[in-house]
Amino acid sequence: MPNRPPRRRGRTALLIAAAAVLGIVAGTATGYAVQADRAPTPLPMLAQPGLAYPAKSLPKGKEPEPLSAEEDSQVRTDGDLRKLLLKRPAGARESTEAGAADGWLSLDEYARDFEEPGFMFEDLAGAGFRRAAGASWEQGEYRETEIVLVQFRPSMSLGAGSHALMQQGYMHASWRGAGNTGDPIKGSSNGRYYVYDVKREAGYLPQYRARAIAQRGDVMFDIHIYDTEPISKKDIRTLAERQLERL
Rank of each mutant, 00 (worst) to 15 (best):
G217K: 07
Y196M: 03
P42L: 14
P42Y: 03
G140E: 04
A132P: 00
V150I: 03
A90Y: 06
G128F: 00
Y196W: 03
A164D: 04
S232K: 04
S106V: 01
T12L: 13
A202N: 12
N180L: 02
A135M: 09
Y32E: 11
K199D: 04
A52S: 08
Q74I: 07
Y204S: 09
P6S: 09
M156K: 15
M171R: 08
G179H: 05
M171A: 03
S68E: 02
R216N: 04
G50C: 08
A18V: 15
A90G: 07
D197C: 10
A39M: 03
E65P: 06
V198T: 13
A47D: 15
R11A: 08
H224W: 14
L124W: 03
R200K: 11
P6Q: 13
K186N: 07
Q139T: 13
L205W: 15
A132N: 01
Q151D: 10
A20I: 09
W104T: 07
E97K: 11
Y226E: 05
Y53Q: 12
E146R: 10
T12V: 13
A101Q: 05
S57C: 14
I16F: 05
E97P: 13
P154H: 01
H172Q: 12
A47C: 11
D218K: 02
I231T: 06
H224S: 09
V25D: 07
D78Y: 05
A101T: 14
F129C: 00
A212P: 11
R88V: 12
A100Q: 13
N3T: 12
G27D: 01
D235W: 09
P2N: 11
A39L: 05
D218N: 10
E94I: 09
G128Y: 00
Y193H: 03
E141I: 03
Y226F: 14
Q168T: 06
R11E: 07
E138A: 10
P59R: 14
Q139L: 15
R192N: 11
I236Q: 02
T77M: 00
K186T: 11
G23T: 03
A20S: 04
A17P: 11
F129I: 05
D227I: 00
G99C: 07
A39D: 07
A52H: 02
G203C: 05
R216E: 04
I236P: 00
A90P: 06
R237E: 09
R143A: 15
F114Y: 13
G61E: 11
L105S: 07
E70W: 10
Y196S: 10
P5K: 12
E146L: 15
L86N: 08
D218W: 09
S188K: 01
R112S: 06
G179E: 02
Q168E: 08
V219Q: 00
P5S: 13
L105N: 10
A13V: 15
I147W: 00
Q167S: 07
E144W: 12
A19G: 11
G126Q: 03
